[in-house]
């Protein structure tokens, strides 16, 4: 809506306010993501270490993703484990809690 208002007030050809608004939104988002990249790497490493204590894992099959929403963001952790992972140790049941 504000984009339309800007257009209305600055004449038909004024596309620059739209460019400005799009850039501001985009860069606020991208700067946040870049700032978070270290956090994600740390999370991934530590999650991997904890799970590896109990389950044999392929480190390449651990994915940590942060999705930013308008009001809430979600942290998605996707770990692929082999089918026979529970044969390794009897401790894995504790992980559920």
């Amino acid at each position: 809506m504000s984009m339309n208002l800007l257009r209305l007030f600055s004449g038909r050809n004024a596309s620059a306010p739209v460019a400005r608004e799009r850039l501001q939104i985009l860069l606020a988002h991208e700067r946040g993501l870049l700032g978070q990249s270290d956090l994600l790497a740390t999370l991934r490493e530590e999650i991997l270490a904890v799970v590896s204590k109990h389950v044999v894992l392929d480190p390449d099959k651990v994915m940590v993703k942060l999705e930013r929403g308008k009001t809430v963001s979600t942290l998605e952790v996707d770990i692929e484990v082999p089918n026979n992972f529970d044969k390794k140790a009897p401790t894995e049941k504790r992980m559920a809690g």
């Binding site: 050809n13 004024a14 596309s15 620059a16 460019a19 400005r20």
Partner: peptide, 16 residues
């Protein structure tokens, strides 16, 4: 073109 609002102006770019 910047004055006509067809191009990002200096202040916009510096602020961003």
């Amino acid at each position: 073109r910047a004055a006509r609002g067809e191009m990002l102006n200096i202040d916009d770019i510096l602020e961003i």
